[in-house]
C-alpha cells in the first residue's frame, strides 16, 4: 500500500501560427495522460489534467509574480508537465500555446513546493543543459521551496511514438511505491533516442538530499523539506 497523493498534469501538443508560435508536438498528451491515468488507476487522486490551450502559464507562476501556482501546480503533490522546454541564462523556461499573460513561464517565477508540491516532472527539453554542479545549482536552488524531487532531461528530450509509454511506465512505478529517482532515470534514459535523464533531490542537509535521491517514494509525502540547502542528483549518460 502507498500513501495517496494528489496528481496534476499539463501538456501542449498544438501551438498557434500567430501567437505563442512553436513547432507542434505530437505525443505530450500520451506522456502526461499516461502518467495521470496510471496514478489514478492505482488509487491516487486525479485533480487536473490540462492540455493544449487549457494549460496555462499562470498555473506555474507564483502569486508574487502575478501567477496562481498555489491553486494549481502547488495544490497537488505530483505534477507531470510535458511540452517544449528551454534553458538559457541558468533559467528553465516552459512553453504554452495559450497566452494568458505570457507564452513562456521562467523558473525564476516558480516557488515549487511552497504549499504542497513534492514531485515535479519536466518531461521536456533542458531541465539542465549539462551536468556540471555549478549549472545544476544555478538553475535549481532558486525555484525549489519545499519540493522534494525534480525529474527531467540533460539537454533535449524526444517527442516520438517510440517512447510514448514514458509517462505510463513512470506512473506505474511511482503509484506503486517504487524509488522515484531510480525509476525516472531508468525509464527516461534512452540510448536509442539519445535521451539522458536526471533526477534532482533537495534537502536541508546533504544526508537528507541523498536519502531522498536514493530512497524516496510517494510514501515520503509528509516528510517535508524544511529548507533547500543541498541538492543531490543522479543521472545516466
Amino acid at each position: 500500500m502507498t500513501l495517496q497523493v494528489r496528481v496534476g498534469a499539463e501538456w501542449v501538443n498544438t501551438f498557434h501560427s500567430n501567437y505563442c508560435t512553436q513547432n507542434n508536438l505530437s505525443y505530450r498528451d500520451d506522456h502526461a495522460v499516461g502518467f495521470y491515468d496510471q496514478m489514478g488507476s492505482h488509487g491516487h487522486v486525479k485533480v487536473f489534467c490540462w492540455g493544449n490551450d487549457n494549460a496555462w502559464e499562470t498555473d506555474f507562476c507564483h502569486p508574487t509574480f502575478g501567477g496562481d501556482s498555489l491553486n494549481w501546480i502547488d495544490n497537488v503533490h505530483f505534477l507531470f508537465y510535458s511540452d517544449h522546454g528551454g534553458n538559457w541564462s541558468n533559467t528553465m523556461h516552459i512553453a504554452f500555446s495559450a497566452q494568458q499573460r505570457y507564452c513562456l513561464s521562467p523558473s525564476t517565477q516558480w516557488r515549487l513546493g511552497e504549499r504542497m508540491l513534492k514531485w515535479f516532472v519536466l518531461d521536456c527539453c533542458q531541465c539542465v543543459l549539462n551536468h556540471t554542479a555549478a549549472h545544476i545549482g544555478a538553475v535549481w536552488f532558486g525555484p525549489t521551496r519545499g519540493v522534494h524531487l525534480i525529474f527531467g532531461f540533460i539537454g533535449n528530450g524526444t517527442d516520438s511514438w517510440w517512447n510514448d509509454d514514458l509517462g505510463s511506465d513512470f506512473g506505474h512505478d511511482a503509484a506503486t511505491g517504487s524509488r522515484l529517482a531510480n525509476s525516472w532515470v531508468d525509464h527516461a534514459y534512452s540510448w536509442w533516442l539519445d535521451d539522458d535523464s536526471i533526477a534532482i533531490a533537495t534537502g536541508a542537509t546533504e544526508a537528507e538530499a541523498i536519502n531522498r535521491r536514493e530512497n524516496e517514494s510517494v510514501n515520503w509525502r509528509d516528510y517535508n523539506v524544511t529548507s533547500t540547502s543541498w541538492l543531490a542528483w543522479k543521472y545516466r549518460e
Binding site: N23, L25, D195
Partner: peptide, 15 residues
Amino acid sequence: LRLPLNEGEGYMKSA
C-alpha cells in the same frame, strides 16, 4: 530529427 524551439537553442528530438 530535431524540432527546433522558437527561442533559445533548444530543440525537441523525434524519430
